[in-house]
Design a protein around this nucleic acid. Structure first.
Lengths: 157, 157
DNA sequence: ACTCTATTTGGATTAAATCTAAATAAATAA
DNA sequence: TTATTTATTTAGATTTAATCCAAATAGAGT
């Protein structure tokens, strides 16, 4: 019953190609994968129905839109049982773009994107105020050196 | 000369809508933003030329493809001057999907995606072997509670 | 080898992207 | 204010792609 068994190399190649440019016409994908464009449609529909391909999004340069500072936050909770409550609060803070439950010292590990240092300070203040949060550690991103999708065709098959 | 000045609310609305679903036809975007589809084209071309919209990518559920474990790595270097060299080495390890230069204790902060715990162990071994890396701390992601794009229309304008 | 089922294909139809010239709007100068 | 220039938007016209579907092919099980 493992869904991975339903996925072959044609699927992976289609995903890889569309992951580089999701707007590539299926006709062009079809040529590169050596199937008909109808097959690309069928496969993509399958992948979408299976929930493997969830959506297509834009890759945006946020700094060019004035969002110049991003930061990772290690969040310590007063009690770890407060996790769900705190996540709900974080969801209401639009600058929080991701949040994870991780092993290690932090109870929650989150990422925020802000316009400038002032904005960052405001957002950090807001997060500190959230009930259940003990303290936070901030890792400000000074440079993004790698940011890329998984490559499927390096070592496996 | 600030590029932000060239971006108006029409641009931001187009970006917001396409960021939710990059495959939405421009004709549909046009209706929602109350301009012609030609204008959507012109604006998107401008945004692409400016490098604000870099590409479109798929949002993939990697766990359904058998990539079940992701982890953040705090990397300590022997000397911080080795940063660029180590980044180049990390680029050759396909499981490394992102790497940042951040404030705080770590010299490099990275994210990796692996199939299972065995695969994770292999990748961690490979990373430890990289010349210049002193030691690493691993935060294994047990749950992804938030993962979303920036929202432009919450508090501003 | 035969039957049943699933997948792929190519062509027909519908829809969207792209291009262009004209219209409109905005900005500047007289 | 009006005239002139410049930039932006628009509405077709054309090209291209997405979508749908019936027929062909391939694969699995008996």
């Amino acid at each position: 019953m493992d869904k991975i068994l339903d996925i072959d190399n044609i699927d992976l190649k289609i995903i890889s190609l569309l992951n580089e440019d999701a707007k590539t016409p299926y006709t062009e994908i079809a040529k590169k994968v050596f199937v008909s464009s109808g097959t690309v449609h069928v496969r993509m529909k399958k992948l979408e129905d299976m929930g493997i391909v969830k959506s297509a999004t834009l890759n945006i340069d946020f700094s060019k839109l004035g969002y110049d500072i991003s930061a990772f936050l290690g969040i310590y909770l007063e009690k770890s049982s407060l996790y769900d409550n705190v996540i709900e609060k974080l969801k209401t803070i639009s600058e929080v773009v991701s949040a994870y439950y991780t092993t290690g010292n932090y109870s929650i590990f989150a990422k925020i994107i802000c316009r400038d240092t002032n904005h960052l300070r405001l957002v950090l203040d807001n997060i500190q105020k959230v009930e259940g949060i003990d303290r936070t550690e901030t890792l400000i991103v000074l440079e993004e050196s790698i940011n890329r999708p998984i490559q499927f065709f390096d070592k496996e098959k």
